[in-house]
Design a protein around this nucleic acid. Structure first.
Lengths: 187, 187
DNA sequence: CAGCAAACAGACGGACCGGTCTACATGCCC
DNA sequence: GGGCATGTAGACCGGTCCGTCTGTTTGCTG
């Protein structure tokens, strides 16, 4: 299958899944929405589950790449980079089709730890945490592991607040809390 | 339908939904798991969707009642009550069948604002926020609306951190941030 | 223009979906 | 013990699920 068509399938799947859940999107509906024939899908993917996994993999690299690029282009100061993460996520969540974090959704729909989608989601969150912890380390913070987790907690909280309450300034609120958290640790 | 059987059905549905998602649990499977006949279910509920709504309603009152009771029995000091909310949620998330917040899951599976489950979930979050804002007001905080939202953000973040990273101390970390947030506002 | 691979639409199979219905078992009240 | 409501198991319905298969159309290549 040519790459553009494959991308289009994955992107359409992601869009539908975001609004209706992984198990709420049927293959038939996806194909109709994407304007792709069934055989084309099954030539590129063994099963629906494999397509879903590919959606998650694609989203993982997309999101982390974009997060890292945003953060690193925002500033050279490691401490400012930490805070820039909140601005990046704010822009991400401002997209009209935002419906919370796809990986959190994946975990709630695939509660079984052995499910591939479950593992992929946890892996994504782990990698994101590792990156933030690295930023904390670069910033010379005394306990990068703990502070990294705290910052991630703030980011996740902002995402949920945005989703559940439509709170558009949630990331800025989280950023303010992050700032005071970091400032408190200055030696 | 007698109340105990109805409760059992709702409780079983909630347990299954928490692990497999709303759309991942079929009526047949639910009945098998609950040991209840189909006609019994459809005597008590018009459709599967109505059962799901009842699950959410039940969970909403259960969770808020329990949250309020925990908070109010923890202390008479409004400021300490705010912090006690984190301990309450920690105990809630420590249950072995914890799989994130059911209402956040509902929002991600029912992205359409007009879906009853979507509305129920938003309503729940709104009521919870209102309660926390009330606590902030009782504590005499200068901007109870904003601080209430910030505290809720911390709680949600802790829940997601617990789910995605298995971070067992997430609520205590959030509580520490909440404490510094509140202390900062002391006049 | 001929030939061919690939994408197309859509029928199809077996399983399962939500929901209705029948027939049998159980227990309770008079 | 007879009548009756209630719960049971499970057949059944039309529809949809995932995945396979068959033809037809398309568009590229020699």
């Amino acid at each position: 299958m040519p790459a553009p068509k494959r991308d289009h399938l994955i992107a359409t799947a992601q869009r539908l899944i975001a609004r209706e859940g992984f198990k709420g999107v049927s293959v038939d509906r996806l194909l109709q929405e994407a304007g792709v024939a069934k055989m084309t899908l099954y030539k590129g993917f063994k099963t629906k589950d494999e397509l879903i996994l590919e959606v998650l993999r694609r989203r993982d690299s997309e999101l982390r790449d974009w997060f890292m690029r945003s953060v690193e282009s925002a500033s050279d100061d490691p401490r400012e980079r930490l805070l820039a993460g909140f601005d990046a996520l704010e822009a991400w969540a401002a997209r009209p089709d935002f419906n919370g974090c796809l990986f959190v959704s994946a975990l709630s729909e695939y509660g079984d730890d052995s499910a591939p989608a479950h593992r992929a989601a946890r892996e994504h969150k782990r990698l994101l945490l590792d990156y933030v912890v690295g930023l904390c380390r670069d910033a010379g913070l005394p306990d990068p592991e703990t502070t990294g987790r705290d910052l991630r907690l703030l980011m996740e909280g902002a995402t949920v607040a945005r989703l559940t309450l439509g709170q558009t300034d949630s990331y800025q609120r989280a950023k303010a809390m992050a700032k005071s958290l970091i400032d408190k640790q200055r030696v």
